[in-house]
Each structure stands twice: as C-alpha cells, then as structure tokens.
Amino acid sequence: MLNYIWMGLIAIGILVAAGNDIYNETQNTYRNGVPMDAVVQFDESSANDLTAKGKINMPADAFRAFYDLPAATDVHQPIIITTSSSGEKLFTLPVDDSSPKHWKEMTKGALAKDKLSGRIVAYTVADDAKSAHVRLEFEPIRFVKMKAVTQSALDIASTAVSIALGLIGVMALWLGVMKVAEEAGLLKALTRLLTPVTKRIFPDVPTDHPAIGAIIMNTAANMLGLSNAATPIGLKAMEELNKLNPKAGTATNAMVTFLAINTGGLILIPATAIAVRVSVGSANPGLIIGTSIVGAGCATIAGVLASKILQRLPVFKRDLVVVEKEASHG
C-alpha cells in the first residue's frame, strides 16, 4: 500500500510540476520580456549614485493588473540599483516575507536565491533626485515548479537526517528511564491497572507484556502534549511489539492499531495551536480545546475501528502468513 502512495506522491508531484511550468510558460504568468513601469523612492542615497537604495511603492491594483492576479496587496519593495562601468543600470529586489507573494514565488525560478534581478531599460530622475521613474526588465523566470521540486527534495533530505539525529538525546534519556521502570516492575504494575481496556484494544499482546506499559505511557504523554517524551516511548513500544512479531519487516495488527491511536492525535491541550492563536491576537485562544478533543477523539476511535476491520480483509491478512524460509531467518 505504501508503495503505491509513495510512488504516487513522487510521480504526481513531478508531473504536476511539469504541467504547471508548461501552463505558466504559455500564459506567461511571470511576464517574461514585458517591462514593468514603477516609481522608486530613494532612502538616503540619490538617484544618481552608482549604488542607490530605495523602495518601489506600487498600489495593489497596478500590481494585480500587471500580473493579472486574482488579488494583491500594496507593494513596498526594497530595490538596489547599481550602475555598471559601461553605464548600464541593473536592479536587484531582495525578496522577503514582506514582498508580494507572486514575487516570492518567482524567486524560486530566479538565478539567485531570495532575490529577483534584471536590467533597467528606462530611467527618468525627478528634479530633486529623490525619486525616479524606472522601467524594469526582469530576468526571465522559467521552470519555477521544477526548480522548487529539486530544491525542496534536496533540502528535506538533509532535514530528515537532522530530525532523526536530533532524536538521539531524548531517545537515550527515555529509553534509559523506561529500562529502569521495566526492571523495577513498574511497567507491569501500570499495565495491570488498565488491563480491562488494553486487552480489548490489543488482544494479540499478552496483558502483562512490557509493550502495553510503553503504549500506555506513550498515550499519556501524547495526551499531555509532551511530544519530546511521547516519541521515544512510542518507539520503545514499537520495539516491544516487534518482539512479538512472527514476520520481521511486516507490521502486525497490534502495531497498526497502536499507530492508529498515535496518528489520531488524541490530546487534551492542543498547545501549539493555542500558542499560535495567542500570537495572532485571538480574543479566546482556548476556544479550540473542546473542539480539538472532539475532533481527535473521533479520529482516534475511527482509526482503531478501521484497524480492527481492515485487518480481517484477505488482502492484508495474507501478508501475515509466515513462509517457512523466512521464519528460519527469524
């Protein structure tokens, strides 16, 4: 199943990227070869300096009309104008979060990262040299999506490694604590407490197995929003469940049910969402506590039920059958 989904994500991604690039090329979404008229207000430097810094101020309507966009906001974009020794004037737009969205997208297809550049084909300086009428010819912007696909694939590959390596410390801490708890018989005690529930959800796992203790602790940590502790303990639970796995490399029913509880995201306080609500000035940031509990509760119940129903399907049952040869390999 994951084979199909994985292949699908990559194939659809690349094909859609190609389609988008062809569409943008035919529609000339980025207005290649079309000069843009604008007014530059200079900060401190004068329009006649060799390197002049200023701002392009453009009303939303003019920007929207030029690129034929459905919506736009007023543009206040910093610009750097340089004059080469041959007298040719060049410009650079350092694009950041305050820049128009369309320009931010265009930088993905530009030569340099996070900036757009080009030539100035007409330059009329105002009398006080504080501003100038300019006609900008942008560098051609092509294959925006393809370049974005390449860039993000390469970037995320190293991000993935940092994420995994970043887990080492907390993993070590919690695996150590869990080992102590296991040796002390604490996990067993915890397990006995919830046996009536867990034996129904995980009928394949012996009721006093350490996996159950880890599952309980993982769920508790998740519900309290302690994801730093939840992931290592969850992985410990997976390792314990894997000890009961008759077929290495294939998920057991108990593993899938456990994953369903985890992906359902059962939580008592959605701390991240509340923090963001506070930061954008919500009058009642805690409003979503109740709704999130309902949403995640439904998702978790649906996930557990789905895992119980789907595990009976012949398609998924078949994979559990242990072939002689594989069994001897352990």
Binding site: E239, G249, A251, T263, A302
Partner: peptide, 23 residues
C-alpha cells in the same frame, strides 16, 4: 514508528491513518 523497527510492509496502516484523518 515503522522505521524504528525496520517495518517495510505496513499492511493496512496507511488506509487506517487516512480514514482517521478524514474522520
């Protein structure tokens, strides 16, 4: 979670996850 125990055949885990998400 599956990576930690070298599980490559995830069986019904993906449909289960998607069902939980949709719900």
């Amino acid at each position: 979670y599956f990576g930690a125990v070298n599980i490559k055949n995830t069986r019904h885990a993906v449909p289960v996850g998607i069902i939980a998400d949709v719900v």
